[in-house]
């Protein structure tokens, strides 16, 4: 399965301004599949249905990484929003930086492993148990 480049085309983020044709031209020799989505944040469920190696071209991974299901997938984020679109005004510079970000992301993807590290849910268990204990003890007498 070819690596998929998933482009977020959000008006609010400004990522809709990018012309995909130009980027496709630059990567025509690579075995890549190009996908466009109106807004990654608004289509998380659709995004989670995608399988295989994925490069999300849009915002920083920090923004939606938590919402994305990474099991059995290799996912890398190419942050063109903060690093390119919001940083530069000149169109040529933007395209140059966007291409570089995508190349770096594709390079990083080679080293990405699919191993899953599932949180142990210590927080939910410990705090949940603590709330039960406090509920059993009853309200703080000073509250009255």
């Amino acid at each position: 399965m070819p690596t998929r480049l998933v482009f977020c085309k959000s008006e609010l983020c400004g990522t809709n301004k990018l012309e995909l044709k130009r980027i496709k031209l630059d990567f025509k020799k690579a075995n890549l599949e190009f996908l466009e989505m109106d807004d990654l944040c608004g289509n998380i469920q659709e995004v989670n249905k995608l399988k295989g190696d994925l490069v999300f071209v849009g915002c920083s991974g920090k923004v939606i990484k938590g919402k994305i299901d990474e099991s059995n997938k290799r996912i890398v984020f190419a942050n063109i929003r903060e690093e390119c679109l919001w940083l530069y005004n000149d169109e040529e510079t933007i395209y140059r930086e966007v291409l570089l970000e995508i190349r770096i992301a594709l390079h990083r993807l080679k080293f990405k492993k699919t191993t899953e590290r599932v949180p142990l849910n210590c927080f939910r268990n410990k705090v949940g148990k603590y709330i039960e204990i406090i509920s059993e003890i009853g309200p703080n007498p000073f509250k009255v």
Binding site: R117, P119, L120, N121, C122, F123, K126, V127, Y130
Partner: peptide, 9 residues
Amino acid sequence: MAFDENYTP
């Protein structure tokens, strides 16, 4: 409390 969620590689 310490959680040790083990979420980082």
